[in-house]
Amino acid sequence: MKRFLIYFFKIIACVLCMLCVLDFTYTLVIKNSVPRNKFRYALSLKNRHYDALFLGSSRVENSIVTSEFKKQGFSILNMGISGAKLGDTYFLLKLLNENKVTFDKVFVQVDYLYNEDGIVFTEARKAYLIPLIRDENVKQIFKKYDDDFLCNYYIPFYRYAKNSYRVGFREFFNSLLNKGPRYSLEDGYVPRYNVAKHKKFILPKHKIKKSKVLEEINNLCESINLTPVYFTAPFCNNLINEQFLVELKNDLNNFFDYSKVIENDENFDDCQHLNDKGAREFTNQLIRDFFE
């Protein structure tokens, strides 16, 4: 038995060593590679100024055509992230602010995202930041909003294992090759090219009374002397529960409803995402409304 226990603990000791070495190597490589997602890109920006910042989910990422702004001589940052909730948006804004990145205008996509319970740091978006958990700003966010903070912070390699789908070996390998993402982070716009057929989208029936995360976003913007512009990107014609947007309009200051601004369904990839043609049309509408 004694011999077996020695064997067993030798294995455990070796595994612990492996975990430490792997944790160190992964962090070193990922940290020193080119940013491969928008959170990392936001952290790489320091002391920069933009005319506008766009925040939200894929409905921003696929709808705001950065090059259209560029044509008109405006510099914007499209920080829409597929699957992001308002909580993720808030953290992104916080990190940009801490890195002294400034803007003249901040646009925040608010629609069904409004009904977020508390401040949610979604798992997938959390994974983007987790290699940098030891950076002070990032650490503070995780400490406050991640239930698994202690394990992520203190157990070597735990954070990479638990998020292996997003920051596992694949991410490590691509970072080692210094391979960027499939689209330009600087541009931030990811076009879609399909044409929607018989699609519909169902909004929630009613909005929740108060959005805690929106309050935080407001406070943060106030602290940097900005008034955020809240907007709803276009939906296709077959939108159910439009009353929800009316409720938002009644309750939110500075809210702009663009849900019906693109009338032709051929400009949609699916009911809640514009295709490239639609995105360009919508972007030009925004330029006309806010920048001319």
Binding site: Y7, K162, S164
Partner: peptide, 20 residues
């Protein structure tokens, strides 16, 4: 054998799917 065991463990740690 011990070395081979460790290699296999390394594969499990590095290539394993734990997120899902």
């Amino acid at each position: 054998k011990f070395f081979k065991t460790l290699i296999l463990l390394l594969f499990i740690i590095v290539f394993g799917v734990y997120s899902d």
